[in-house]
């Protein structure tokens, strides 16, 4: 009666693909980190020089 309540933890995860990482996903993972480094540099005032207030001043000059 109670046995259908018990889970077989062995059946939750595939054995043969347990250590597989899809290549596309790995590329995505590292590409997003690289992009993050670029964006952080570009949009941090003390690094890339951009600031939201100076960007406004520029747009008002136009």
């Amino acid at each position: 009666m109670a046995d259908h309540f018990v889970d077989d933890i062995e059946k939750f995860e595939a054995k043969e693909t347990a250590h597989t990482l899809p290549v596309g996903w790995v590329i995505l993972f590292w590409a997003l980190i690289l992009w993050g480094v670029y964006y952080f540099y570009m949009y941090t005032p003390s690094l890339g020089g951009w600031s939201q207030n100076s960007a406004l001043e520029e747009s008002l000059q136009k």
């Binding site: 207030n53 406004l56 747009s59 008002l60």
Partner: peptide, 13 residues
């Protein structure tokens, strides 16, 4: 927000 049309609509950011 410090955006051109917003400053026009509402006033200084």
């Amino acid at each position: 927000r410090p955006l051109k049309t917003e400053v026009i609509r509402y006033g200084d950011y």
